[in-house]
Simulated scan of single mutants.
Amino acid sequence: MALPSFDNSWRDSQSVKPRILVLEVKDKERPEAEALGWVLVEREETYRRDPRDGTIYEASIRLSYQRITAKFSHRDGGKGRFDGSYSCNFNSVSLTSPSMSKGAVFLDLPGLDGQRIGTYLMNEIVQWVQQWPEATVNSIELLAGQAHGDNKARRNWFYEQFGLVFDYTDPEHREGRSRPMQAGALATVETWKQNIVEHRMLDYLAAVLYAEERATSELQARERACTQLIAEQKKAEARPLRWALRQLYYRYANTVFAGLVLTIAVGIVWVKMKA
């Protein structure tokens, strides 16, 4: 039997991703290297339908994220959420708010900045709102205090890569507002696939257990080898001469035996030649 939070589900004859996924995040500059970190993402979708005909009149999505660390600490941060929503009454969608009001996007993952995790989360929101392609996308307002220096250009591009076009109020593009557009005109972005891999929770847990079992097996093998070395050392200390002779025998026994066999063979050949 499937576990609802860990397996794909169905909605209106369409497959929906599992509610909980684990992201393996690698360095976008070195995607072949080991993972920089792991992020847990939980997906929550709500729909309100008209009881008369079953049509959706309100909906929302929330993607909650939290970094998985070996040692949990509340001071480390590493958690937050992305929200989106839809309203039939206004025929509009929001990419940043759960209730069609003004919202904002913030990514709090120290040590994983700039690794396309925000792009992954926003792309999920964009794909979700495209269920209503003719709905108007609520305008997104950019404020000067939201970003500084190089972060400003990254912030602007973060939204622009999804097809949003901004009218900026200053030459430095510190502030601006996105132009009206339909959800169907938004662009989906898959650059995150270059350094982020989605894992089902059960697959992730299985991999963790396998790694633990393998590490335990290797540790036990090393402990046995260490025990044998200690025992051998005690033998050597107790009777050093006998231990040394035994080591010489073990090391050269095969060589001596092979030499004897070769000598006997040569002797037999020599005897036959004389005869």
Rank of each mutant, 00 (worst) to 15 (best):
A35H: 05
R154M: 10
R179I: 01
R177P: 01
S92Y: 10
K28W: 06
V105E: 14
A258Q: 15
D7M: 04
I125K: 06
A221P: 00
I20P: 05
K17E: 11
A215W: 08
R200Y: 02
L209H: 15
Y252A: 11
N151C: 01
V266K: 04
E24D: 08
Y86S: 07
K71L: 13
G77F: 00
E172V: 04
S5E: 13
T169H: 02
N91M: 05
V266N: 06
V266I: 11
Q146H: 11
P171A: 04
A215M: 08
A207F: 07
S94Q: 07
A187G: 12
E175I: 06
D76Y: 05
A70V: 05
L202P: 07
A206T: 07
L241P: 07
A215D: 10
V16E: 03
D83Q: 01
G176D: 01
W192T: 08
Y204T: 00
G84H: 10
M1F: 11
P31F: 06
G176L: 03
A253D: 09
W128H: 02
V197Y: 09
Y252H: 12
T191S: 15
D7H: 03
Q131W: 07
V126C: 01
I196W: 06
I68F: 08
R75P: 01
S178Q: 03
R43M: 09
L109Y: 14
Y47N: 12
L219H: 15
P18K: 09
L241H: 09
L109A: 13
Y168H: 03
L186K: 03
E232H: 06
R222N: 14
R116A: 02
D53A: 06
P98W: 07
Q115W: 06
E24T: 13
S92W: 11
A59D: 10
A185I: 00
E141M: 14
N138P: 04
A225L: 08
P133V: 10
H74C: 14
K28H: 09
D170S: 00
E124A: 14
R48F: 07
G163S: 01
K26D: 01
R67L: 07
G184I: 00
V197M: 09
V41Q: 00
L21W: 07
T191R: 05
D167K: 12
R52F: 12
L63E: 02
D113Q: 15
D7C: 06
L109E: 05
A35G: 05
N156K: 02
K26N: 13
T46H: 04
A185S: 12
P133S: 05
G145V: 10
G78I: 08
A275V: 15
I196A: 06
D53I: 09
N195E: 08
K102W: 15
A183E: 01
G114Y: 08
V189G: 04
K28P: 10
E198S: 05
R19Q: 11
Y86N: 07
S178C: 00
S97A: 04
